[in-house]
Design a protein around this nucleic acid. Structure first.
Lengths: 349, 349
DNA sequence: CTGAAAGCGCTTACAG
DNA sequence: CTGAAAGCGCTTACAG
């Protein structure tokens, strides 16, 4: 920028060399209090702002910013966790000339989460991007990172943290309320609603619980008299899905008019309904899983809510880069939009 | 980047100076065919890619990229056209260190569009961002820009162009189909549907016509027997709105169950309905106009479709910058997502 | 505690 | 037709 102040101008104004200005800017030792004060005053007065482009051009070769990404291991053929990764890779591509290096680590359970977290901290990364599936272990990682002064941004899930940190994720309660709005629009006041939680061996995911809460909140606030039943399917990730007696019992009494599935496995619902000859049911689920999209096209699912996982990954890297280079954390605390998907706008997302 | 090839390495491999490499890279004259060929081969073999950051650091001071933005004049207090501007300003902010200069020009009619277009071309901008409201005049601008080798990206509206160019806008036909899907979900097969075109003195906007077409297409394809009436309101922009006899006649026969307004002025509908004691009508409209949002909150409008105008402006500038600096036009042809808004997710957008 | 020099990768006059 | 030098704004050894 021609009309903006640079370190050269600062140096001239302070009657020092640019090296000394640089020391002050980076809080490096070896400057007398007097010169430091003088330079700091001038920096403030002139509103000097570092040229990040020039700074990174210089550093790109010798001192890349190293970011560790610790996410759940990709399990099945379609995996949700490939999506944030895609966004991360896009961000890395865009920042490649600025000197950035992203390494991936994977966890499957609390134990591997801690193990990988420790490995990351030992390798002295500049920042960490991770997913707080496990509350205790996430707090453990956070406190260690705090000690080493390494910033963390948490994606996907919100948990209670002992220290403030960064979050990029959807407000799951809000997403549940949106689901309520959508499903009520289709079903109206008179029908019975099912909330279906599909639970893996790890138990009910925090997001799912919050979505259920939001859904119920929507009806409590707007349509008090609607009937809602909470149903649970226990379905370990890697075992084939079976309609068990518990599911059979869903349809003993009244039949549902609307079903809200609190996670990505809403594609299981149509077969359950068919098996019990239940028709005319509206379904709202989550995530652009390929099977969900198929159901959307078949009209077996009416709405999907998208968490914009690519966007989450992209924003995490771009935001962290901005934070590391400009101390600007404004992109690191974000409620991702609750994106509503129907058959027609599905391809454009 | 340390492991990537730079001009220095190219120069060494070709036994020339970096100046000569630079001449070849920029297709500047003054290089013998032999050296040019040799260097070009090496560039291809090594997969050399210019470091845009270094390049722009160099040029930011002396040769900023100048982009002209030619958009409709902001008319009322709330103006749609402030939104793309917001996105443009965000992009400019992000690119400030890379040397960019954006100037705004405004038009109100075909005449001022041409006038401003000529003014822009005379000032030798590097690129133009504009809105093709007027087909003939837009093509006129495009052909002149083609002559001067200045790229144009068109926002908001798609028109038939004589030459290929760049477009960033929503697929309005698709948006109409989405509206059909949403409204049918609320109303079902039995009700009467109104499509309401609210027309200014400039006539029906191309987007509105395409949205109407898409809406009808949705029903023609999926629910053939639904009854749809097309209604028109003539309402010059700066005159107060009045319920005239034409509107009165809407309700002579059957009353509508669903209303689709093809532009941002869906907030006019609730008063019309109240005046005729018509209730239980679902309404879908466009754009996050403050009055629309109010209606969404009051439950007088059920869905709004957003065209992401900020995003359009942002993408236009970022995409054009990428095109000018890296000859990569991949972000300059874009179908903006059809974003579905309900009361609950309205604030997050 | 401070300064002068070299360099990040590219671009531009200028000299020959 | 080609090269050598200066510079974009910042950062880093190195010298004193």
């Amino acid at each position: 920028m021609d009309n903006l102040i640079g370190i050269k101008q600062i140096a001239k104004l302070a009657n020092v060399s640019i090296g000394t200005v640089d020391r002050v800017l980076h809080n490096r030792p070896g400057v007398s209090k007097a010169t430091r004060d003088k330079i700091e005053t001038i920096i403030k007065e002139t509103g000097y702002k570092k040229n990040t482009v020039a700074s990174r051009l210089n550093l790109a070769g010798r001192k890349k910013l190293k970011i560790a990404v610790l996410i759940p291991e990709v399990s099945s053929n379609w995996s949700y966790w490939n999506l944030p990764k895609k966004g991360i890779e896009k961000a890395v591509e865009e920042l490649s000339e600025m000197g950035i290096l992203v390494s991936y680590y994977y966890f499957t359970d609390p134990f591997s989460f801690i193990k990988m977290g420790d490995a990351i901290l030992n390798k002295k990364y500049d920042a960490v991007v991770t997913v707080p599936f496990f509350m205790v272990e996430s707090n453990n990682l956070l406190s260690k990172a705090k000690r080493d002064n390494i910033p963390i941004v948490f994606l996907d899930t919100e948990v209670k943290l002992d220290y403030p940190s960064f979050f990029i994720r959807q407000d799951s309660n809000l997403a549940g309320r949106v689901a309520g709005r959508l499903l009520h629009g289709l079903v109206g006041n008179d029908g019975l609603y099912f909330v279906v939680n599909i639970v893996t061996e790890r138990g009910l995911h925090a997001n799912n619980q919050q979505r259920e809460n939001g859904f119920r909140e929507f009806f409590r606030t707007n349509f008090k008299d609607s009937k809602i039943s909470i149903m649970t399917i226990n379905h370990p990730v890697d075992r084939p899905f079976e309609i068990n007696s518990e599911i059979e019992s869903w349809f003993k009494d009244e039949r549902p008019k609307g079903i809200f599935v609190t996670n990505a496995r809403s594609y299981l619902i149509p077969d359950i309904l068919k098996a019990h000859s239940v028709s005319n049911v509206s379904v709202v689920g989550f995530d652009l899983h390929e099977d969900n999209i198929k159901c959307l096209r078949n009209k077996e699912i009416d709405f999907l809510i998208n968490q914009k996982p690519e966007f989450q990954g992209y924003t995490a890297i771009k935001g962290m880069f901005k934070f590391l280079t400009e101390q600007d954390s404004s992109d690191l605390n974000m409620d991702v939009p609750v994106e509503i998907i129907v058959q027609e706008n599905c391809n454009l997302i």
